[in-house]
Simulated assay, not measured.
Amino acid sequence: TGQRAVTISKVVSALIILIIGFWLSTPLKKRIGAVSARFFHVTAPGVVLIEKIFHIMVFISLVIFALITVKIPLTVFAFMGGALAIGVGFGAQNLINNFISGLILLLEQPIKTEDIIEIDGMTGTVVSIGARCSQVKRFDGIDILVPNSEFLQKNVINWTLSDSLLRLTIKFGVAYGSPTRNVSQIVRHVLEEHGKILKNPEPVVLFDDFGDSALIFIVNFWVNVDPELNNRIIASDFRHMLTKRLAEAGIVIAFPQRDVHLDTATPLQVSLVQSSLPSVLGQQPTVE
């Protein structure tokens, strides 16, 4: 009927209701999250999930309320349902996929905010999990936006999933002839002196192999994962300290080398022969 027709004024009124409703719901959403965390001891990912569910419910409620208030019948949009579904299915499938993946991440919590993860060779700290993508801050300070579906479709290493412990491995070699027991003892002293290396689990020092040019040692030790401190810095400090202690003990860190041995049982023979090709200056002798 004419009274139920969709007009520009009705559409504008509905949009105004939606905008005002979202503006009023924003502080309420934050308040609900704060109450959930304070009184019900909900974790940070749980608070984010509650806020997102509240956001979706508010959106649906506002749309229905706006259409009813301005007297736009819902049946008007019925004939567009099929075309809209096809358009959403093809045009927004990645958006919907990432949105649903974000909800799964918040429900199952394979990763959480402040977790240290590795994906596609990139390591960083999860800053936030959004509706479409998550923000990961690398240790070099660069922020990366990763689509939520990537966390479910690719292999992800979560260094802090069950605990905050991380094992580091240092491999080095010393020259042949070095006292291996003394080397192991020096390494243990350095491990005890380093302030960031944990005593429990206990570090392990292994005389691993006889290399081509060195005696190979492997050191395994554990550290607490710290988002503010790159673990490579801890490994670098350990190498500095170890190099200094080995040098003080007169132990040389090996480097690749080759020894050439000449068989002098028989002397080398040197003879002069005439070249078979004529030269401009005449025949020249050739040394063999």
Rank of each mutant, 00 (worst) to 15 (best):
T1K: 00
G2E: 09
Q3M: 07
A5V: 10
K10V: 04
K10G: 04
V11H: 06
S13D: 12
I17T: 09
F22L: 10
W23F: 13
L24A: 14
S25V: 10
L28D: 01
L28I: 15
L28E: 02
K29I: 11
K30R: 13
K30M: 11
G33S: 02
A34C: 05
V35F: 14
S36W: 06
F39L: 11
F40A: 13
V42M: 10
T43R: 08
P45K: 05
G46A: 08
V48E: 10
V48F: 06
L49R: 07
H55A: 13
M57W: 10
F59K: 02
L62H: 03
L62N: 07
I64F: 13
L67Y: 12
T69P: 00
V70D: 04
I72C: 03
F77Y: 15
G82L: 11
A83P: 03
A83W: 12
L84K: 01
L84Q: 04
A85P: 02
A85C: 09
V88W: 07
G91R: 06
G91H: 09
I96K: 01
N98P: 00
N98I: 05
N98M: 02
S101W: 05
L103W: 03
L103F: 14
E108T: 11
E108P: 00
Q109V: 13
P110T: 01
I111D: 01
K112E: 09
D115T: 01
I116L: 09
I117N: 00
E118C: 12
E118D: 09
E118A: 14
E118W: 00
T123A: 01
T125V: 15
V126P: 07
S128D: 15
C133D: 13
S134E: 02
S134F: 03
Q135N: 14
Q135C: 10
K137T: 08
F139E: 07
D140W: 06
G141Q: 00
I142P: 02
L145D: 13
V146P: 00
S149Q: 11
E150T: 09
L152I: 12
I157M: 12
W159Q: 00
T160P: 05
L166D: 11
L166C: 02
L168T: 01
L168D: 10
L168G: 01
L168K: 12
T169Y: 00
I170K: 12
K171M: 06
G173T: 05
G177A: 02
P179V: 04
R181I: 11
V183A: 05
Q185Y: 07
I186H: 06
E192T: 11
E193T: 07
E202N: 13
V205F: 12
D209H: 15
A214S: 15
F221R: 00
V225G: 04
A235F: 05
A235S: 14
S236R: 10
R239S: 14
H240Q: 13
R245S: 15
L246Q: 08
E248T: 07
I251F: 04
V252D: 11
I253T: 13
I253G: 05
A254C: 06
A254K: 03
P256H: 03
P256M: 06
R258F: 05
D263V: 06
A265R: 14
T266A: 10
Q269H: 11
Q269G: 04
S271C: 02
L272K: 10
Q274L: 08
S276V: 10
S279C: 10
V280N: 11
V280A: 13
T286S: 04
V287A: 11
